[in-house]
Structure formats: structure tokens, C-alpha cells
């Protein structure tokens, strides 16, 4: 913090960053185009990428859109980097949370299957189609 920093915002020391309207409008246009693309990719099959191949394309496009919103609408590109550190750590912790949970999400499937196999007519009536 400069000792000469004024107590009122001035042109040299504005409060916050001013993102001009044309940048905001360009961001909106990019977001709408990406939304169209993410809908358009569902018109084609992406099974080469696995059963849920579309989900990876959708997530990449969604992340691009989220980055645009954060960088320009939320001024993150012009902010102090620490705000980005806060956001990215939150995202990392969500990913860690999901990844660790998914690691043993199927842990009880054998038990469930064994339970259903004991008396399928009673415990798994959905598998007993006529």
C-alpha cells in the first residue's frame, strides 16, 4: 500500500477495476456461443469416449464458460491473485471430495448383490419380470 494512496478514489487510484462494456458484451457473446455448442454436441454420438462420453465434453465447455464468467464478469482477471486462490482451492476441495467418495462408491455393490441373490423374488422383484 503506497503511503500516498488517497482516502478518496481518484482516476489514479480507482476502487476496483473498471471492465468496459464492450469486454462484458464480448464475454456474453462467447458465453452464448458456448451454450449453443454444448447443446449442439448432444445431437451427435460421442460413444467413442465411453458410455458417458458427452459428459466430458459438456464439463470442458462448462468450465470454459465458468472461467469466462469468473475472469471478466467477476473481475478475477484484474483482482488480486489471492481471490483466485480462494476460488481455485474451493474447486480443488470439491474435486477431492468427489474423487475420494467415488473411490469406494461401489464398495457395497457385492453385498447388495448377495443380499438380492438370497431371495430374488422378494428382494429383487424388479429383476423377476414375467
Amino acid at each position: 500500500m503506497s503511503p500516498s494512496e488517497p482516502t478518496r478514489p481518484t482516476a489514479a487510484h480507482p476502487v476496483g477495476h473498471h471492465v468496459p462494456l464492450r469486454v462484458l458484451a464480448a464475454t456474453l457473446a462467447a458465453l452464448l456461443v458456448l451454450t449453443f455448442i454444448t447443446v449442439a454436441v448432444t445431437w451427435f454420438s460421442w460413444s467413442d469416449f465411453g458410455r458417458a462420453g458427452n459428459i466430458w465434453i459438456a464439463l470442458v465447455i462448462a468450465t470454459l464458460k465458468a472461467a469466462l464468467v469468473a475472469l471478466y464478469f467477476m473481475h478475477l482477471r484484474y483482482d488480486r491473485p489471492f481471490n483466485a486462490v480462494v476460488l481455485i482451492s474451493a474447486l480443488l476441495f470439491v474435486m477431492l471430495f468427489c474423487a475420494l467418495t467415488l473411490m469406494d462408491a461401489r464398495a457395497y455393490q457385492p453385498d447388495i448383490q448377495a443380499y438380492r441373490d438370497v431371495d430374488p423374488a422378494h428382494y429383487a422383484p424388479d429383476l423377476q419380470r414375467p
Binding site: 454444448t38 448432444t42 458417458a52 462420453g53 458427452n54 459428459i55 465447455i61 462448462a62 464458460k65
Partner: peptide
């Protein structure tokens, strides 16, 4: 919502 839309509506 940017994440909710493809995850819920655009399953393919």
C-alpha cells in the same frame, strides 16, 4: 447453473 444445465439436461 452453467454446470447444472449440461449435467442434468444434456445427458446423452
Amino acid at each position: 447453473w452453467i454446470y447444472l444445465f449440461p449435467l442434468l439436461y444434456l445427458i446423452h
